[in-house]
Amino acid sequence: MDELTITPGSACQGCGAALAARLAFKALGPNTIRHGVPCCPDSATMTPRGGGGVFEGGGAALTGTWRALKAKGITDVQVVGFFGDGGTYDIGLQGISAAAERNENIWVITKDNEAYMNTGNQRSSSTPLYAMTSTTPVGSVIKGKQTGKKNIPMIFAAHHVPFVATASVGYPEDLIAKIEYGKTLTGFKMLIIQSPCPVGWRYDPAKTIEVARSAVQTGIWPLYEITDGEKFKLTYKPRELKPVTEYYKPQARFRHVTDEQLAGIQEDTTKNWEKLLKSDELGQLLI
């Protein structure tokens, strides 16, 4: 597998999203057209690029590219959107949902760093509960974000598309395997890659992989894949989850979170994990 990102890019030191781009494009291979929308880092790749996109138009841009190729009889190219959580969860959601509903033969890969990092860490609908961002600051009255993270993979599973999966930069083999599998499918494919951001999440840049791994090991960011909106498989199943405090404590964006709040997060995380385990046993997604 060749390296297809052009480095060094403009990402910050220890950027999880830059690693997500590197791993994803390595797996996608050179026969790929990449679409980006404004987000960070705007990783450059050696694959051709569909430029000029607007932030809100990710799903439509991929549709247009794919349909033009199809009209010309070129069907062996991966048409890939590489967006941030802003482009996927928020401003671009409508167009991506429509593309999923039409089952366009495209990839939507999201480097999810849980806030609008390009503009300086403003909250997105992907920002988790209580996280401090520049628009959900820790004030004397309101402390951090008051609502939880939007469950985007499940929303897209409900579109009954061929492939929806989560991945983490802490588990590169899993990430690459999911892309390789997705490449064998025709239709809409989504991969959400949790990509820690040392600047926004406020931890030492050297710990990016550690933080990513602990999200998976605590059950905060479970790794799974859903095919055709039904078949469900956990791709990382520890015998026992680590306590969520292991994930929360090292990140200063959660510094103000109380023990009581952490207990609530632990309860929700465990409940969600048990549901996923049950789905995994059945091989069938339980909602």
Binding site: P8, P205, A206
Partner: peptide
């Protein structure tokens, strides 16, 4: 020319062979 000095490799080396 590509190294930004983030320290990820230092942190991820399982045998502590990389010093920062």
């Amino acid at each position: 020319r590509k190294c930004k000095g983030c320290g990820i490799c230092v942190n991820e080396c399982p045998v502590g062979a990389i010093e920062f």
